[in-house]
Write a protein that binds this DNA or RNA. Sequence first.
DNA 1: AGACTTTTAAATGTATGACAAATGAAAACT
DNA 2: AGTTTTCATTTGTCATACATTTAAAAGTCT
Lengths: 244, 244
Amino acid sequence: MKTLVKDTTSDLSAQIASALRDAIISGHLRVDQRLPSEAELAEEFNVSRPTVREALKRLAAQSLIRTQRGAFGGAFINRIAFEDAYGQHVTTSTLLLSMNAVSFDVACEARFAMERACAPYAASRRSADHLATMRAEIHRQSQQGLSDESWCASDVAFHRALVDAARNPVLSYQLAGSVEAMQPLMNMITFTARNRETIISLHSEIADFLEICDSVAVEHRLNKLCDYTKTLAHDIIASKSKTK
Amino acid sequence: MKTLVKDTTSDLSAQIASALRDAIISGHLRVDQRLPSEAELAEEFNVSRPTVREALKRLAAQSLIRTQRGAFGGAFINRIAFEDAYGQHVTTSTLLLSMNAVSFDVACEARFAMERACAPYAASRRSADHLATMRAEIHRQSQQGLSDESWCASDVAFHRALVDAARNPVLSYQLAGSVEAMQPLMNMITFTARNRETIISLHSEIADFLEICDSVAVEHRLNKLCDYTKTLAHDIIASKSKTK
DNA sequence: AGACTTTTAAATGTATGACAAATGAAAACT
DNA sequence: AGTTTTCATTTGTCATACATTTAAAAGTCT
């Protein structure tokens, strides 16, 4: 029987989950390796099966394991795919911003700082596909009568294409949190036709300079975009406080 | 009774967790608000209490809720703190790198690209405290007989101080994943005295230029550090394949 | 009346036992 | 040999019971 030497403040399922998680992170358990059955784990840790199951669900929520029913089924160490991680990262980042009253400026600054970091690689590695995606989104943004929500979604898609153009999955993963998590904040802004025009022209320039591999110019336009976005947010806040 | 219209492929606890998660993210449930009791949720979703508990544990694993025992206890929507998010982010990032065979170069490139993004802000906002932390770590790195593990830990501490100097919690949070997740990869490198000397001198220069607010020079040194680290890793790989 | 103690109800934490459903291997059968 | 059936194993779900914690409410003493 394995004994849990962890703190006694948390419940058993948390301690068991923690023990298993440590084993996974340390590499004692390899990818696709099968964990003991729930009944065996219950005996090992000297707890009941529901308690073991609660622990396993905690790990499943982090995509650390997957489960399969039937004979020769069980819980298997999961190879975390970038796609799995995206979702969790975006969820956490979104709530971090909305719950901690992170100011628009701080979130904006972080997002564009990281996008600028992608610019040099994006400029040298962008494919025709990436450019096509960006131009398609620019075209969508130019359409009349686009709702603010759709506009923001297209904005995210444009910037994701920019980030993906750097062809570094780690950068894409990390950036996803910053870019997508800002969408709820962006949705609070009402974009006028004039606002959109300014942003679209910057988007166009970014695509153009990316095409001719001028990363310095891209970074400059990202800076302008950052400043303009912050200005818009400030105007909204100012007009709201005036109304009140 | 709430009905779950989600896919029938996943189990009930996953569906219930998903439904509650959506409610939290959408803002229908506010921070510190109490969820219905497990018994009430069981009735609402028409499932048993153990199933509800599994769903709640999934949410707890993501720090979305916290539970409290006793009368007037229950599950409460949790305000995710940056510290809570750090841990999850580092865990996920670490496993992403180790399980997906992300090359050292790709991880290194992402990490230093993001650090460079912090440089301008760090240069203009660094406090005496940040500089002191960095110099303290440099001093530690200069000590004879420091184990490779301690060396790497100090390296992480140095770079975290650099990132924190930008005074943007969102950047610090995002960077934590890239910087700390690389530690296992870095631990595979054996640092000779000569290697360390080179790195320490770059660290010193970074601290110096940060002190005089020269962000361009800092970025340049970060680039050199990135290149040198990659060179070290290549040498290790080359010598290993030669031995084999 | 006020401060302290006890009771009590409500909620989560844990255990036990049972059955359903899925699944792949082995056995039985063509 | 190929197909079908059986079967043991394992997860998914439910029902019930009890332990433990907690804070409010009731009771008690000064």
